[in-house]
Simulated assay, not measured.
Amino acid sequence: MLSNNIRSSALFNELSELLSGMDLKVVDCVKNETAQGIQLIVTIFSPNREVNTDDLAEVYNILYPRYSVIFQDRDLSLEVSSPGLTRNLKDFYEFSLFIGKLVRVYSTTYSCWVEGYISSNSDESVTLTSALIIDTNETKEELVLSYGEIQKAKLAYRWEDSK
Score class of each variant (00 low, 15 high):
Glu17Ile: 06
Tyr64His: 11
Lys140Ser: 14
Ser77Gly: 08
Ser46Met: 01
Thr34Glu: 05
Lys163Met: 13
Val103Gln: 07
Ser119Val: 15
Asp161Trp: 01
Cys112Ser: 15
Gln36Phe: 06
Tyr110Asn: 08
Met22Trp: 00
Ser125Gln: 11
Val80Phe: 05
Leu15His: 09
Leu145Asn: 11
Ile38Glu: 02
Val26Tyr: 05
Ile150Cys: 02
Tyr147Leu: 08
Pro83Gly: 10
Val59Arg: 07
Leu145Gln: 10
Thr86Leu: 01
Gly148Ile: 10
Ser3Lys: 15
Asn137Gln: 14
Glu160Trp: 02
Ser82Val: 02
Tyr157Pro: 02
Arg158Lys: 14
Cys29Asp: 09
Asp55His: 04
Cys112Arg: 07
Ile62Gly: 04
Glu50Trp: 01
Ser82His: 01
Ile38His: 01
Asn88Lys: 13
Ser125Ala: 15
Lys154Gln: 11
Val69Pro: 06
Arg49Glu: 03
Val42Trp: 00
Ala153Gln: 10
Glu94Trp: 05
Ser82Tyr: 02
Asp135Phe: 04
Asp23Phe: 00
Phe12Gln: 13
Leu143Ile: 02
Ser9Phe: 05
Lys140Asn: 14
Leu2Gly: 10
Val27Leu: 06
Leu89Arg: 15
Val126Asn: 13
Tyr147Trp: 03
Tyr157Met: 13
Leu128Cys: 05
Phe45Thr: 09
Thr86Cys: 00
Ser146Phe: 00
Met1Phe: 03
Glu160His: 01
Asp135Asn: 11
Lys31Asp: 04
Asp23Trp: 04
Ser81Cys: 07
Gly100Met: 10
Thr127Gly: 07
Ile6Val: 15
Val27Glu: 04
Glu160Asp: 12
Gln72Ser: 14
Ser46Leu: 03
Asn5Val: 13
Ile150Asp: 07
Glu58Asn: 10
Thr53Trp: 03
Leu78Ser: 03
Asn88Met: 09
Phe45Ile: 10
Val69Gly: 02
Ile41Trp: 00
Ser81Leu: 05
Asp23Tyr: 00
Ile118Asp: 00
Phe92Arg: 14
Tyr67Phe: 15
Val42Thr: 09
Gly37Leu: 07
Ser125Thr: 08
Lys163Arg: 13
Gly37Gln: 04
Glu14Phe: 03
Ser20Cys: 09
Leu89Ile: 12
Val59Asp: 02
Glu160Val: 14
Asp73Ala: 05
Leu63His: 07
Lys154Ser: 08
Phe71Met: 04
Ser8Val: 12
Ile133Gly: 08
Glu149Ser: 12
Ile99Thr: 15
Val27His: 03
Ala10Gln: 13
Arg74Lys: 12
Ser96Gly: 15
Leu19Asn: 09
Phe12Val: 11
Gln36Cys: 06
